[in-house]
Nucleic acid binder design. Structure first.
Lengths: 152, 152
DNA sequence: CGGATATCAGATAAACTGATATGA
DNA sequence: CTCATATCAGTTAATCTGATATCC
């Protein structure tokens, strides 16, 4: 409790600060849970997207994660290097590479899902169902406003 | 584009995903705005805390930003290297170093404040006052839940 | 040609763990 | 002694911009 003082009042009220605080805490908790599995949170996010959409291209993964293709390329290259995913040429499109989980990747994701299940639940444990729905909606509207302004 | 399904449905609903999306968009917009000033968002955050609490120690800054002292040490070292802050020994405590903005630092922060003003405003432009207050409160409660669980 | 894709090259801030020294 | 502080050393994933090549 005593260590919570560090932030000056005016700052603690700002949405941006709260957003960062919550996101960084979630990230740290997830990183800690995923460490035994050998994954980071961005890697887990990428694997989750591949799991839900097998055959997805690197460019599509990058768009889903809001990063550049080069950044996602780095993440994907790491995952491929350790054998959690593999990529094949799209027969219909010579340039695209279709990513999919390997057997090892599926096993890792089973462990990862177990490891992180409960963290997001713990985060919203103090919120009612309506409040959770509202939080998701408010965040989506904020993201939309930012996206419009930045999507020039 | 037929397979350009950026984000699988089940994922888009999750609070964690929304949190990350909103935070990363805010981060990117702020980075873009701060680039002409020569600052990154974490640097701006650290400078803001120093501006509001002159004499703050590195350890306190780290707690405020939810990072390790070593991480904040790196940020602070960069800021000191380029002459935006300076640090002096605390006369009452031989080990602590008190950080403060230099004249250059104050000038940079004036420009930075102008550069980022409007971004957070744009983010919450679609929200009513009550909704903004509620969003801040919900985020704070999420952070608190995460902090308790992880504060071991 | 233009647009999307993949990927190499290079740079950098940011983040971690571990170890060490010093002062209250 | 213990705790907080600062800081050195080393590592890594994540991020960017820029430049190329390929494919539709």
């Amino acid at each position: 409790m005593s260590s919570a003082q560090a932030m000056p009042e005016p700052m603690a009220r700002r949405i941006g600060y709260r957003l960062k605080q919550t996101q960084i805490l979630l990230r740290q908790r997830m990183d800690a849970a995923l460490r035994p599995v050998g994954l980071t949170t961005p890697q887990y996010a990428a694997l989750s997207a591949i799991e839900l959409a097998p055959g997805i291209s690197n460019a599509a993964l990058a768009r889903a994660a809001f990063v550049t293709p080069q950044t996602m390329q780095g993440i994907v290259a790491n995952l491929e290097r350790v054998g959690l995913i593999e990529r094949r040429s799209d027969p219909m499109h010579g340039r695209r590479l279709q990513a999919a989980l390997t057997a090892n990747g599926q096993a890792a994701m089973s462990r990862a899902h177990r490891a992180v299940s409960g963290i997001e639940a713990a985060m919203i444990a103090g919120l009612s169902h309506d409040e959770t729905t509202m939080l998701a909606g408010l965040l989506a509207r904020c993201a939309e406003s930012l996206g419009e302004a930045g999507a020039a």
